[in-house]
Amino acid sequence: MAKGQERDYLQWSVLAGLTILAGLMQGSLLHWWGFLGVKLDLVLVLVASFTLLRGRRDGVILAAIGGALLDFLSGRYLGLHVLGKTAVAFLIGLVRDVVYKENYLVPFSATFLGTIVDQGIYVLVARLSGFTIGSGILGHVLVSAAFFNSLLTLCVYFRLAALDRFLRERDAAEQQSS
């Protein structure tokens, strides 16, 4: 394996590993810590953060990995989480280059709007399948989930940025030494 490919492989192992761990935690550990009846979406938080940090292509790939895992764990609509998460990564990726990513408001707003898009797609498909979801609960869940996911993003975004920087710098140093 070429040196560059090996480094890329390591970076992707870390990012994909984090996403898979987030997906597993979301289905098992996190339901004990619901806020106002809604669950935190760790995969979405990672997807929104890494799309801002690494760009649309990487964000969409991570979204596909995380979304597929959630779909398998859910056992219902195959591809629904993939659809929602990749749509979020795609949209954040479109505006990524025109926003100042170091500002706290940017990851907060990206996750807030991303959650609304992701949950909106979920509800739309569920409703098309004939499921009844009341308007009152719909508004409550959308706003609460968006708010708590955004708060979580604020807590982890700059740590993820540091991790991303560390991985890139490590690769750059290895590249120089070789």
Binding site: Q26, G27, L73, H81
Partner: peptide, 8 residues
């Protein structure tokens, strides 16, 4: 485990 989403 539980469904990872908020709806189902």
């Amino acid at each position: 485990a539980r469904d990872p989403g908020n709806w189902l």
